[in-house]
Design a protein around this nucleic acid. Structure first.
Length: 482
RNA sequence: GCCCCCAUCGUCUAGCGGCCCAGGAUAUCGCCCUUUCAAGGCGGAGGCACGGGUUCGAAUCCCGUUGGGGGCACCA
């Protein structure tokens, strides 16, 4: 039996159920976003559940990082750790007794059975099956053990795991995004639901929790599609109605391989540290596998909530495009307020071991906001203002040596005479100097910029010099190349 | 090997039988602007994987091939 649709009128409940791996993977972040949007769009409930069954790496710290990232993205949960809710606890390690209760019930009712095969034996049999070209799934050896056989295994001191006895029937999964997927009974082998150490596997824990937490929709990665028939059968054995399922296409790297650490950037925390704005990441992620119409690219959070719809989720794996994210981030930076940019850029500079004067940063923001696609980049552009350790890079050094030390000295003398140290006055004097030098503006300013900022790339010259101040500007012009 | 999913510019996508000799965004190239770099403006190049059907008509429907992804664990 395939699952029946949920009764109409029931309010939506969906969830994100990350394993606390120590960071929030962008793929999970996107799944979280889609669930959150779906819940908010329908006025439903968004639940956070931590799937930490038996993992060593499941520490409070790791869970804290995941929650911090979700909050940074603005994905608040209505039920879950720290906020509570009627169906808690929301951490699987605190729900273990529920899984063993269910397992006992299955054991008693014949939906599951004890399996005494050791991991070594299983692996060997899998290998052989594969070699024979047969499906490598469990062969059902312990499914119908006699009392005597069981006693013998027990006497041997063998560990006991519990396996779910899959009904011998085909299963159809109704997916909200993909339609129907059919699975043949023969391909659905019995699987472990309770490990020999008494902890549940994902298949059991997720299914039990989804039922007990009254989830109406399960929106998750496509990698879980093949496990859905198993969960459907567990839920059926539970005597419950299954939720509706929607499997999202996976997020892959530029090489079409699953997005992993090899690609450099998979953790939401990485984007945060690197200077991406949460609204940019949210907007980008929303469009990575979903679209609204032919042309709309920018969506405010409210617009996303208003327009999000599972039927417009794409079916194919989406490659994460860092350049497009950076472009989008630049767009949001250009739209951000001066105060906010001052704050985050100041923070970024501090992170670079500098001691920025926030008022100087504030004055410099208009100079760099169009020149940075990340906050980190803004910090790099303004570095010369907050340290005197400015060593010209290769291109800058070339520009300087081409013009000669005398040229810089002369520029310093001209600037020294500026009475009113404003960009306007500095501009007037520098242009005069450039004209006298019979050089193009480009050629004349290059060495000055190089000496003052240490780079051939910088914010506009006059304003940069104004912000740097007379003394430091003259000092740099006079010491460079000497 | 077996099972499942998928297939439009490099990338993300629009397209759900005629509006498409395929639209947008990004990336890329050129021009303009310009004190560098950006931003911005204008323009260019670039795609329906292939083969069969169905149809008056196919990017759109069906089948196959190829390709990509996922799964087949006492991971989640």
């Amino acid at each position: 039996m395939a699952e029946a649709p949920r009764p109409l009128g029931e309010s939506v409940r969906c969830r994100i159920a990350p394993a606390p791996t120590g960071y929030l993977h962008v793929g999970n972040a996107r799944a979280a976003l889609y669930n959150w949007l779906f819940a908010r769009h329908s006025g439903g409930t968004f639940v956070l559940r931590i799937e930490d069954t038996d993992r060593v790496r499941s520490t409070d710290e790791a869970i804290g990082i995941v929650m911090g990232s979700l909050r940074w993205l603005g994905l608040d949960w209505d039920e879950g750790p720290e906020v509570g809710g009627p169906y808690g606890p929301y951490r699987q390690t605190e729900r273990l007794h529920r899984y063993t209760e269910v397992t006992d019930r299955f054991l008693a009712g014949g939906s599951a059975y004890a399996c005494y095969c050791t991991p070594g034996e299983l692996e060997e049999r899998r290998r052989l099956a594969r070699a024979r070209g047969e499906p490598p799934g469990y062969d059902g050896r312990c499914r119908n053990l006699s009392e005597a056989e069981r006693a013998a295994f027990e006497a041997e001191g063998r560990q006991r795991a519990v396996r779910f006895a899959m009904p011998e029937e085909d299963v159809t999964v109704h997916d909200l995004i993909r339609g129907e997927a059919h699975f043949r009974a023969n391909d659905l082998r019995d699987f472990v639901i309770l490990r020999s150490d008494g902890t549940p596997t994902y298949l059991l824990a997720a299914a039990v929790d989804d039922v007990q937490m009254h989830m109406t929709h399960v929106i998750r990665g496509e990698d879980l599609l093949p496990s859905t028939p198993r969960q459907l059968k567990i839920i059926e054995a539970l005597g419950a109605e299954p939720p509706a399922y929607a499997h999202l296409p996976l997020v892959v790297g530029a090489d079409r391989q699953p997005l992993s650490k090899r690609h450099g950037s998979v953790a939401v925390e990485w984007f945060k540290e690197r200077g991406f704005l949460p609204e940019a990441l949210v907007n980008y992620l929303a469009l990575l596998g979903w679209s609204y119409d032919e042309t709309t690219t920018f969506f405010s959070r409210d617009e996303l909530v208003d327009r999000f719809d599972l039927s417009r989720v794409s079916h194919n794996p989406a490659a994460f495009d860092m350049q497009k994210l950076e472009w989008m981030n630049g767009h949001y930076i250009r739209e951000a307020t001066d105060t906010r940019l001052t704050e985050v850029v100041t923070e970024a500079l501090r992170g670079g071991a500098l001691v920025p004067d926030p008022s100087v940063v504030a004055a410099a923001i208009p100079l760099v906001r169009e020149r940075m696609s990340t906050i980190e980049e803004g910090g790099r552009l303004l570095r010369f203002l907050f340290t005197d350790d400015v060593v010209p890079d290769e291109k800058a050094a070339n520009a300087i040596s081409k013009a000669g030390v005398g040229f810089l000295r002369e520029a310093a003398s001209r600037l020294e005479a500026v009475e009113d140290w404003t960009a306007e006055e500095i501009k007037r004097v520098l242009i005069l100097f450039q004209e006298d030098s019979h050089m193009s503006r480009r050629d004349a300013f290059a060495p000055i910029r190089a000496a003052v900022t240490g780079s051939t790339v910088s914010p506009p010259l006059y304003e940069s010099i104004e912000l740097l101040g007379r003394d430091r500007t003259l000092a740099r012009l006079r010491s460079t190349g000497a």
